[in-house]
Structure formats: structure tokens, C-alpha cells
């Protein structure tokens, strides 16, 4: 009910282009410009609402689908400490999904609707999770690179104009930076280990490097949503700025590990103090985005399977709750 009501507020109350609408829109933009937070009950342009729903739900789905490649190693973690840390990490990702679904719900969509969109294949999630985790080193690489890139993307969102999203992100970033350190620590143990372990770490870096730097999205010249999102302060930096920042931080870390980033053109430009890097193969990015990556099919299949297999459990919980309500009413 609550979410439905909010939804209609966005769509029906203000005919686009009306004088009243323009005045509200101007006031809205002034608040955003003044760095005020927009809250669920405040008026907001429908496009702002839809942009946030799209972005937050994609983010939530990414957390949930992201549990799969890492969860893949829980039963095989090489020590009990690593097992415990990995379980806690995957659990955190689920928790992030939960806050983010809740943040999106304040915009007029239910978690159920969002999950239906994910399962139907109409909602997107981060393409990075369509790559497989083939060895234990991949768990390290995912923490180090994927969580590292995610943090770079997400720290600016802590200052996003939409209050619930910004607040969810503060907590998420804190946990993600912990995960990133844990991932780096796994890589460090491998890099300092046997020749086989170092090879395992290098192979993981070879496979995860390019997909990780693609996580920042298309180049600024190609990005459809950047300009408007920046005006609304949903986004604070462009894709290319964030990618550059990530590479500048990560390249010396790879050096410290004694691993080689698989980009022959990567070098530090002494003048600008930035790392220059080779051309990104965007055709691969597009292919994975369109569903043709190595694990798109498996990831969605796993989500659909869990949802379908869990149907009777969710029905049981609902039926029991209903019986409890009826019994309480009868007793009263």
C-alpha cells in the first residue's frame, strides 16, 4: 500500500510541463544544488525516481547475484579461518542487498516486483558476476579488484542527493572496504606462497583485470545517463574519472604483490602522475551485458532455481502467519 501510494505520486500528481510542475522541479533542483537530502515523502521528478529505482535495484540485484561466485568457494575454502571470513563476507553481501531493496522500496516499488524483474531477465545486475570463480585465487581477486572497484563507485554515493540511498551506502562502504582488504590479504598470502600459488594469483589477475575496469561502465563519451545523474547529484564523478582513480590506486598494489597487470600499455605518466592504460575491449563488455558472458545463464538459473524451490517454504510461512492471525482474532 505504502509503496503503491508513493508510486502514483510520482506519475499522476503532476502533469509534465505544467506550471506547477516546473515550479516544483525548480525548487527540487535548488534543494539538490544546496546539497539538501531528498527524502521519500518529498516531491521529486518522476525521472529522478525512475533513475534511482533502476540504479538501486540493479545495485541490490548485484549484491544478491554476487553471492553466487563467492559462495562457490565456501565449501572449499582452504582454512577454517578463510571459510569463516568468506561466509561472513557473502552474508554481508546479502545484507547489502536487503538494505538496498529497502532503500528502493521507499521509491514506490516492492522487493517482490524487483525480484520478479531480476528473474524475468528484465532487470540488470553488475556484469562482473557473470565471470566464473575458477580457483581460490579468484576469491582474493574478487575482493581486491571487484570490491575495490565497487568502493570507488560507491563512496561518492554516500553523498548522493537521495537520503535513504546515501545512508545505506555509508554502511555498505564500510563493510566493502573491509572485504577489499580481506581480498588483498588472500592475494598477498598467495603471492608470498609457493610457485603454484603465485601462478594461481597471476592467473586470477589476468582474468579479472579487464572485467574489473569495465565495471565503471562505458566511457564518458558513450555514457547515456551521466550528465543528468550528475545534475541530480546521484552521481558525483564520471565513469572515466572513477576508472582512472581505481587504476591509479590498484596498479601499485599489483606491483607490491609482484603480479603483472595484463596490459602491456600500462605505465605511469610522470607528468600527470596517472597510469595510462590500453584500449578496453568494449565488445566484450557489450556481449556480457547482453547475456552472452561465461556465466549469465548459470547465475540467472541459480537465482530462478532457488526462488522456485523456495516457493513452498514462503507459502508455508505465509499460511502459518495467517493461521496465527486467525487464532489470535478468535481468542480476542
Amino acid at each position: 500500500m505504502y509503496t503503491q501510494a508513493l508510486d502514483s505520486l510520482g506519475k499522476d500528481c503532476l502533469p509534465a510541463g505544467s506550471t506547477q510542475g516546473s515550479a516544483l522541479e525548480a525548487r527540487f533542483q535548488a534543494r539538490v544544488d544546496a546539497d539538501e537530502k531528498i527524502e521519500p515523502k518529498d516531491w521529486m521528478p518522476d525521472a529522478y525516481r525512475q533513475t534511482l529505482i533502476r540504479q538501486i535495484s540493479q545495485h541490490a540485484h548485484s549484491e544478491i547475484v554476487g553471492m553466487l561466485p563467492e559462495g562457490n568457494w565456501i565449501t572449499r575454502a582452504p582454512t577454517l579461518r578463510r571459510k569463516a571470513v568468506l561466509i561472513a563476507k557473502v552474508q554481508d553481501e546479502g545484507g547489502h542487498g536487503m538494505y538496498l531493496y529497502s532503500a528502493a522500496e521507499t521509491l514506490g516499488i516492492s522487493r517482490q516486483q524487483m525480484i520478479e524483474q531480476l528473474l524475468a531477465g528484465t532487470a540488470k545486475y553488475s556484469s562482473i558476476f557473470n565471470y566464473p570463480t575458477l580457483t581460490w585465487a579468484d576469491v582474493g581477486a574478487v575482493g581486491w579488484l571487484v570490491d575495490g572497484a565497487a568502493i570507488m563507485n560507491q563512496i561518492p554515493i554516500c553523498r548522493c542527493s537521495y537520503g535513504p540511498y546515501a545512508r545505506a551506502m555509508v554502511r555498505i562502504c564500510r563493510e566493502e572496504s573491509f572485504h577489499q582488504r580481506q581480498g588483498f590479504e588472500i592475494m598477498l598470502a598467495l603471492a608470498r606462497g609457493s610457485a603454484e600459488q603465485r601462478q594461481m594469483a597471476q592467473d586470477a589477475l589476468n582474468r579479472w583485470w579487464w572485467p574489473s575496469i569495465m565495471m565503471f561502465g562505458p566511457s564518458d563519451t558513450q555514457s547515456k545517463h551521466t550528465a543528468q545523474s550528475m545534475r541530480w547529484k546521484i552521481k558525483r564523478f564520471t565513469n572515466d574519472e572513477l576508472r582512472q582513480k581505481f587504476i591509479d590506486i590498484t596498479a601499485p598494489q599489483a606491483e607490491f604483490l609482484g603480479l603483472k597487470i595484463p596490459d602491456p600499455q600500462l605505465h605511469r605518466d610522470e607528468g600527470s602522475e596517472h597510469y595510462r592504460f590500453g584500449t578496453i575491449d568494449w565488445s566484450e563488455f557489450q556481449a556480457v551485458l547482453q547475456g552472452n558472458g561465461p556465466c549469465n545463464r548459470e547465475r540467472l538459473e541459480a537465482r530462478r532455481h532457488a526462488h522456485a524451490e523456495g516457493g513452498w517454504v514462503r507459502e508455508a510461512a505465509a499460511a502459518h502467519a495467517e493461521k496465527q492471525r486467525a487464532r489470535a482474532a478468535q481468542a480476542a
Binding site: 565449501t75 561466509i87 545484507g95
Partner: peptide
């Protein structure tokens, strides 16, 4: 631990992971 990511609902995924984590900690 085999359940994590595959439970009937998100809440149960978190719940079962929590149990797994405690049990591995006890072990």
C-alpha cells in the same frame, strides 16, 4: 555453508549463513 546463496528467501540465506558461521567458529 552449501545453502548460502540458494535459500528460499534472502532472510533465510542470511539466517543459515549466520548459523554456519557460528558453527565453524565453535569448530
Amino acid at each position: 555453508g552449501e545453502w548460502v546463496g540458494h535459500s528460499p528467501a534472502l532472510e533465510e540465506d542470511l539466517g543459515l549463513a549466520n548459523l554456519a558461521l557460528d558453527l565453524v567458529g565453535q569448530a
